[in-house]
Design a protein around this nucleic acid. Sequence first.
RNA 1: GACCCCAUCGUCUAGAGGCCUAGGACACCAGCCUUUCACGUUGGUAACACGGGUUCGAAUCCCGUUGGGGUCGCCA
Length: 504
Amino acid sequence: MRSKPPQGRGILPRQPGRLWTLGRNRSISMSQVITRFAPSPTGYLHIGGARTALFSWLFARRHGGQFRLRIEDTDRARSTEDAVNKIFEGLKWLGLDWDGDAVMQFSRAARHAEVARQLLAEGKAYRCYCSQEELAQMRETAKAEGRPMGYDGRWRDRDASEAPSGVPPVIRLKAPKDGETLVADLVQDEVKVANSQLDDMVLLRADGTPTYMLSVVVDDHDMNVTHVIRGDDHLTNTFRQMQIYNAMGWTAPSFGHIPLIHGPDGAKLSKRHGALGVEAYRDMGFLPEAMRNYLLRLGWSHGDDEIISTEQAVSWFNLENVGRSPARFDLTKLSSLNAHYLRQASDARLAMEVAPLIEKSLGRQLSPEEAERLTKGMEGLKERAKTLVELAESARFYAESPNLDAKALKAMQPLLDNDRALQMDAFLSKAYDLPSFDRAGIEALARNHSEETGMKLGDLAQPLRAALTGSTTSPPIFEVMEILGANLCQNRFVSAIKAVREAT
RNA sequence: GACCCCAUCGUCUAGAGGCCUAGGACACCAGCCUUUCACGUUGGUAACACGGGUUCGAAUCCCGUUGGGGUCGCCA
């Protein structure tokens, strides 16, 4: 096990009291924690990104700081507005609110270029005129010789007069060749790499646009980000970014690199590997609070606690208890957590969530009476469902008379027997005459009836359940009867009997 | 290939040298509860990757092996 990082490191302000202005004259005090989530809008918000966002959000909220959003759209070819909206929607659905306006990275390209030019002017960067072919060649020979596959620095010290005409150069960082670069990571501890392993990275492309390495550093610095929480896959990038911070004489933020989430098969969870966007989980009927709880426990722990409310998470979250090994995504556990939060949710809220789903499958609007039955039905239904989708399916019979499935038909078979049918009729007519058609009254009647006739309660309940709900599984049948009301019960029972006779 | 990271039940994890005969949760199995299905509840199966050290004592510290993952773009 790793040694724990020194307590309190990194959450202190870098330059207390200093103010920066950014975007729409938004002043940010530096004496607080500022985290950010910086997705690239080339697709939906996937599960790994969602967890990174959650951790960053939690960390900021925990320390009373700010959580900011930056859209890294400098790849003009692959960035889409649709993806930007999906990210916004995903975060909103998850309940991760960000402070201030989202920063669109591309809008800051001029600032990024300015930094590159400054580095150039200070002799900390240089122009490189290599062609793509040359670079490919370079990588090949490096690999063949067992060296790191990087740029060999051939333009590092060449005179400007040697520049070929008509070839637009890129600007590369003049990275240190000796020594090592160190990252004091809040999750991974100290990680270092020999500078000889790192090449002179491109800061500004030939077309004058900044590379990712440059823009993240400049933006994180300008946005006064104090804590960069991101995926493990950025750990080795961090060495390079460190070199830019050093070259600019800037204090780097603290970093926390959290392990990646893998698919159920242990392979990397990526978009081309079937990873889904958070909206897919929303559509599968998961609740955002269940998702938050699940994602939180994927990599972070608080002793043996499993069910952790967002409020608790905000007051408990820290980087010390983030694990360092990758986790697999397990839909089953998400489901069980979801079932828990479903049981916890209010009937009104659930009815509201489920109504559109039922309306869609019915192809019509729900009447006020149907909607009311739906709400009343939630109590018994919600502890039997794992997702909103299941809940909607199981609630359908409150809106529309069910078709009897095969099992239901079979469950009603006993009523084909004359004596049994008469007994059932006797019970039902007594029930319909009840002054109050409620679950307790009907149940008392049923128990009474079964005692008198020597029938088992189940012999009465199962055929009724089948007739009224169309299924052999449902909430307690007397509760269902109360919610349905005497009239509907009568109608449904009569037509169910008819259906059974016809089917036989 | 080079560099970096990781390694406890099937899965998520607890574990900061003796509290470990390794704990919890999900899943699974069995019992109880019961008008069905669930819920709830009781119990059960199930793990320290391997090999060397250090130490009176190692899941825990060190080294190596193996296995997994990540990064090496004028993508982010």
